[in-house]
Design a protein around this nucleic acid. Structure first.
Length: 602
RNA sequence: GCGUGGUUAGCUCAGCUGGAUAGAGCGUUGGCCUCCGAAGCCAAAGGCCGCAGGUUCGAAUCCUGCACCGCGCACCA
C-alpha cells in the first residue's frame, strides 16, 4: 500500500493515516494488499471498511474481524468512535480534531485547491478546437473548446507541463467552396461593409455555395434521377469542377487565388479570435494546416522505404491494417500524390513529437472519429514505436437540443456567438429588477459572467463520452446544479466574511461539529481528489461535481443555525470564519479551473 | 455484418473501479424571511439500475447472450 503524500490529497492522506495500523495488522495476519478505509454507503459513519473479504485468510467471521480492527482504529486521535456492524467496520471522525486540520489545510496548503505532483515532469500536448475556416463555430465547438481548455487546466494542476494546440483547418476543398461563392456573388463585401463578424461573413458564402450547388443539381436532374450529390460534385458538376480548379490553383500558388484565400481566412480567424476571447479559451500555439499539410508526404515516403507501407497499382500508398489487429487497408497517400487527412495527421504528429518532445499527446475530437483515431495511432505506432502508448483520443459525444439534433440543413445549428449573447441577454432580463440600481457597465459585466458560467458548467458537467441535451434556460438557472449556483455560493461567502470581520479569539473547533459543518468539511476534503481524478481521466465533470457539492454544502451551512457566524460566541465565530474562508477559497479556485468568473456580488 | 459508446426516478444525469436501505438536480407537493443577501434553505412522494443467465459471502458495477438508441467501419474531413 502506498500512502499518498499530504501534498496530494488531504482526504486520502487522512484515510491513509488512520488506515495504516489497521492495514499493518491485517498484513501481519496474512491478508495480502488490504485496501484502505473508504466512504461508507450508509448514514452515520465517516469511514468504513467491509471485512468479509478477510474472513477466509483470518479464518474468523467478518464481524469478529471488524471488532478486532475497530479496537486498533479507536486508538487514533482523529477517530471518535469505532463500531462493527454486519461485518463492516464503521468509524466516526473526532470532528473537532479533523476540523482544525481541514481548515488549516484549506487555508494554507495549495493541495487543498487540487495542486498535486501526480503528473510532475510530464510533457503533454493537447490539441483542441481545430476549426475549419469556412464557417463560424457552433455549440458543438463550444463543448470541444471548453473540454480542451479545462482538461489542460486540470493537467497543469496535476503538475504536467502542458502545451495547448489549435490546428486550424484552413485549406482544402471546403475552403474553396466559400471562396468560389464569394467570387461569384461576393460583390466585394467585407466584414465592415456587411456589418458581420468575419467568420460569419465567410460562413454566409459557404451556405451560398451549397444553395447554388443544390440549384445546379436540381436543374441538371429535374426528375431526381441523378447520381449521389457527392459523385456529381466530384464528377461533371460545373461548380464542382470550378471548386477543384480553385484548389489546384491554390496549391500551385496562383497569386490571385492565394490573395483571396488570405483575405477570407484572415476574416475567419479574426472572427474566431473574438469568439475564443469571449469564451476564455486560449492556446499556446496555433498550427495552420496550410503551413504543414505537406509534412506527411515525407513520413509516408520514409514509411514506404521502411516497409511499413506498400504501393497500390495506381501509385497510391497504403497501410495493411492487419498489422494492428484491424481488417483491410488504409490508404495514406492518394494515387495522384496528393495528401489525405491522415497524411497530414501522420506528419503533424511526427513534427510535434520532434518539436515538443512530449510524453503524451491528447486529441480532443468528437466520437464520430473514434475509429479513425484507432487507425491513426496504430499507424503512428508502426512508423514510430516511441509513440506507442503516448497518444490519447479524448473522445466526446455530441450536443443535442431539446427538440432534437442540430442540423445545418434545417437551420437548427446554434451559433456560438449568438448563444453567448443570448445567455447574456437572458440573465440580464431575469436580473433586471435586482440590478435596477446598478451602473449599466457593472450589470453587463455580471450578466456576461453569469451567462458564461451557465454555459461552461453545463457543457462540462456531463461525462465527456455522453451525448446530452443542452437546455439554455436550465443552464443559467441559479437553482440546481449550475455554474450560477456555484457563483452565488461564492458571492454569499464573500459578503458573509466582509460582515463578520476578523476573529478575536482562538477557534473553538467543536462549533463545527454538527451536521452542516461536517457536511461542508467533507465536501472540502473531497475536492482535491476530484481534481486529480479529473486530470487522470481527462474528465472535467469530476470537478463540476465536487464544486457543486461544496456550494451545496455551504448553502446548507450558512442557512442553518449551526452555521451562524455573526453574533456567535467568539471561539465559534473564529472557527466558522475559518471554515467559510476556506470554502470561499476552494469555490473561487474551482470556478477558476472551469474558466468561470468568481463574482463577489450578484 | 463488424467495431464502439449508451440504456439508472416523470425529465436531465451521478454512481470514485464489487459492499450494508441505489444518489443528485429539475419538475410535483408541503414548510422557512422581526434570522450574516429567499437568485437561498428544509421536508415528502417518486426506481424489478433495458432483458435473461453466470461468477461472488455480496453485482447498477465483472463475464456471456439478447433487445433497442447513437456513432463509425472512404484514395471525405
Amino acid at each position: 500500500m502506498t500512502a499518498p503524500a499530504e501534498a496530494r490529497d488531504f482526504r486520502a492522506a487522512l484515510i491513509a493515516e488512520i488506515s495504516a495500523p489497521i492495514v499493518a495488522f491485517l498484513v501481519e495476519q496474512g491478508v495480502s494488499e488490504p485496501p484502505a478505509l473508504g466512504a461508507p454507503t450508509v448514514e452515520g459513519p465517516d469511514l468504513a471498511m467491509p471485512c468479509h473479504r478477510f474472513a477466509k485468510a483470518l479464518r474468523k467471521a467478518p464481524q469478529q474481524i471488524a471488532l478486532a480492527i475497530g479496537e486498533i482504529a479507536a486508538a487514533h486521535p482523529l477517530v471518535a468512535k469505532a463500531e462493527a456492524a454486519n461485518g463492516f467496520l464503521n468509524l466516526s471522525f473526532s470532528w473537532p480534531a479533523v476540523a482544525a486540520r481541514v481548515v488549516a489545510f484549506a487555508e494554507a496548503d495549495p493541495a487543498a485547491l487540487g495542486h498535486s505532483d501526480l503528473l510532475a515532469g510530464q510533457k503533454v500536448v493537447i490539441e483542441y478546437s481545430s476549426p475549419n475556416t469556412n464557417k463560424p463555430q457552433h455549440l458543438g465547438h463550444c463543448r470541444n473548446n471548453l473540454l480542451g481548455q479545462t482538461i489542460a487546466n486540470l493537467l497543469a494542476r496535476a503538475g504536467a507541463s502542458v502545451t495547448r494546440l489549435n490546428l486550424v483547418n484552413d485549406r482544402g476543398i471546403h475552403i474553396c467552396k466559400s471562396m468560389l461563392a464569394y467570387q461569384r456573388a461576393g460583390g466585394g463585401q467585407t466584414p465592415e461593409t456587411a456589418g458581420l463578424k468575419g467568420d460569419h461573413l465567410v460562413g454566409k458564402f459557404y451556405v451560398e455555395f451549397d444553395r447554388q450547388f443544390s440549384a445546379e443539381y436540381k436543374a441538371a436532374f429535374p426528375n431526381g434521377d441523378g447520381p449521389e450529390k457527392d459523385a456529381w460534385f466530384n464528377g461533371d458538376s460545373p461548380l464542382g469542377q470550378q471548386t477543384r480548379a480553385l484548389l489546384r490553383a491554390w496549391e500551385a500558388g496562383d497569386p490571385e487565388v492565394v490573395a483571396l484565400w488570405r483575405l477570407m481566412n484572415g476574416w475567419c480567424e479574426q472572427g474566431f479570435a473574438q469568439t475564443y476571447a469571449r469564451m476564455g479559451v486560449g492556446f499556446d500555439r496555433i498550427e495552420r494546416e496550410s503551413e504543414i499539410y505537406q509534412l506527411g508526404k515525407k513520413i509516408v515516403e520514409d514509411g514506404l522505404n521502411d516497409g511499413v507501407f506498400y504501393k497500390l497499382p495506381d501509385g497510391a500508398v497504403a497501410f495493411d491494417q492487419t498489422k494492428i489487429g484491424l481488417e483491410g487497408k488504409k490508404v495514406v497517400l492518394r494515387g495522384d500524390g496528393t495528401s489525405l487527412y491522415i497524411t497530414q495527421d501522420l506528419g503533424t504528429a511526427a513534427m510535434r513529437h520532434d518539436k515538443d518532445q512530449f510524453d503524451r499527446a491528447i486529441y480532443v475530437v468528437g466520437n464520430e472519429q473514434d475509429h479513425y483515431f484507432k487507425v491513426l495511432f496504430g499507424v503512428l505506432g508502426e512508423l514510430r514505436p516511441a509513440l506507442r502508448g503516448r497518444l490519447t483520443h479524448r473522445s466526446y459525444g455530441m450536443v443535442e437540443l431539446p427538440d432534437g439534433r442540430m442540423k445545418s440543413r434545417e437551420g437548427t445549428v446554434v451559433d456560438a456567438d449568438d448563444l453567448m449573447s443570448d445567455l447574456h441577454a437572458l440573465v440580464a432580463e431575469t436580473s433586471a429588477e435586482r440590478w435596477a440600481g446598478l451602473e449599466g457597465a457593472e450589470a453587463s459585466r455580471r450578466a456576461e459572467a453569469i451567462g458564461l458560467a451557465g454555459l461552461k458548467f453545463f457543457l462540462l458537467k456531463f461525462n465527456p463520452e455522453r451525448t446530452f441535451i443542452f437546455d439554455k434556460h436550465n443552464s443559467i438557472a441559479i437553482e440546481g446544479e449550475t455554474g450560477p449556483y456555484c457563483q452565488y455560493a461564492h458571492a454569499r461567502a464573500t459578503s458573509l466574511l466582509a460582515k463578520a470581520g476578523a476573529p478575536t479569539a482562538a477557534p473553538d473547533w467543536a462549533a463545527l461539529d454538527n451536521a452542516p459543518g461536517r457536511g461542508l468539511m467533507t465536501a472540502l476534503m473531497s475536492f482535491p481528489g476530484a481534481v486529480q481524478r479529473g486530470a487522470l481521466q481527462l474528465d472535467p465533470s469530476h470537478l463540476t461535481g465536487a464544486l457543486y457539492d461544496v456550494a451545496k454544502a455551504f448553502s446548507s451551512f450558512y442557512n442553518s443555525a449551526d452555521g451562524r457566524v455573526i453574533g456567535a460566541e467568539a471561539g465559534a465565530l473564529a472557527a466558522r470564519v475559518g471554515l467559510v474562508r476556506a470554502t470561499r477559497k476552494v469555490l473561487a479556485e474551482g470556478l477558476g479551473l472551469l474558466g468561470i468568473t468568481a463574482l463577489d456580488e450578484m
